[in-house]
């Protein structure tokens, strides 16, 4: 496939991922509303919010880094998405996967948050650094079980290439890493709860406490860029998890079903749990999830 065609397909993939991420956000709001006995917003509400923020007439910024914050976040999401093969064996949706891309993907997972930290810090609102401090603390704690799980999976497949990890899981449901290495999967899926920042790990945004945390000062067009970045970031994370633990996808419907299930694992947990404080969240992640991650590595070592 010529490079230009590949770029065109990848760009289309990014657009679809943004749309998918936004609509999944709408479904989440609807589900949350139904759980709370409300009617809830229409499913396309995130699109309206995005458009509304785009059509705000004035925007206030606080400096170059403030503008770059959402850009970094969106770049992190898009970069992560572009590294991960979405559909196995389909050159159109393989994006720009290469050997060793898992390491870069893990870096991109946290790149956006670091950019946001710099940008929101320049906003100058006291709630922003509080949210950032909490977010980075929580992030570095769930990174440990997630890193252990990734190490276990990579050692099991004998490669740091996502495409090869997906290839090593083919041949039936029981070959998926979810069943082949259940300990690593437990560690990674518990870390996913923290990654998505739903309850009980939503101390970062912490509505009603430090109003919205890092994006307190972000308005209008910055906010819409951040919403789009968040959407594609969520999709990229789901696709990464699908590739690492659920054996990838062979067709687009399969990819939709699997990513939906992965995301709703965190939504259903979030719908029924209260919020952890930062130190509780850190203790949680350094407890059982880390133990499960170590067990996953040991399982690979002594197989």
């Amino acid at each position: 496939m010529p490079l230009a065609t590949k770029i065109a397909w990848s760009a289309l993939g990014v657009l679809v991922a943004i749309a998918y991420g936004l609509s999944i956000g709408g479904v989440i709001r609807k589900v949350m509303a139904r759980i709370q006995g409300r009617i809830g917003p229409p499913v396309w509400q995130p699109f309206i919010d995005l458009g509304k923020n785009l059509f705000m007439r004035s925007a206030t910024h606080h400096g170059v880094m403030f503008i770059l914050g959402p850009v970094f976040r969106a770049a992190g999401g898009i970069g992560l998405f572009l590294l991960i093969p979405v559909i196995v064996g389909d050159p159109r949706f393989e994006n720009f996967a290469f050997s060793g891309d898992l390491l870069l993907a893990m870096y991109f997972l946290f790149f956006g948050s670091l950019g946001m930290a710099l940008g929101a810090g320049e906003g100058g609102h006291p709630h922003s650094p509080i949210g950032i401090g909490r977010g980075l603390a929580q992030m570095s704690s769930f990174e440990l079980p997630f890193g252990l799980a990734v190490v276990a999976i990579a050692a099991q497949a004998g490669s740091f290439s996502i495409a090869e990890i997906v290839a090593s899981q083919q041949g039936g449901v029981l070959h998926w890493n979810l069943f082949a290495n259940p300990f690593a999967s437990v560690a990674a899926f518990l870390a996913f709860l923290g990654m998505n920042m739903y309850a009980p790990f939503n101390i970062v945004g912490a509505p009603q406490e430090i109003p919205v945390g890092p994006p307190t000062e972000y308005n209008s067009q910055f906010l819409s860029l951040m919403m789009a970045g968040r959407a594609i970031f969520a999709v990229a994370k789901m696709v990464l998890y699908m590739d690492l633990f659920l054996g990838g996808a062979h067709s687009i419907p399969e990819a939709f079903v699997k990513t939906f299930l992965i995301y709703f694992w965190s939504v259903f947990v979030g719908a029924v749990f209260p919020r952890f404080r930062t130190e509780q969240a850190i203790r949680f992640f350094l407890g059982w999830p880390t133990a499960a991650g170590i067990a996953g590595v040991l399982l690979v070592m002594f197989r």
């Binding site: 709001r29 009617i39 809830g40 309206i48 206030t60 509505p207 109003p211 307190t216 000062e217 308005n219």
Partner: peptide
């Protein structure tokens, strides 16, 4: 929320 309205805690948003 069914009208698309939400509470925002910051004037910027």
């Amino acid at each position: 929320e069914r009208f698309g309205m939400a509470m925002r805690p910051t004037p910027r948003q």
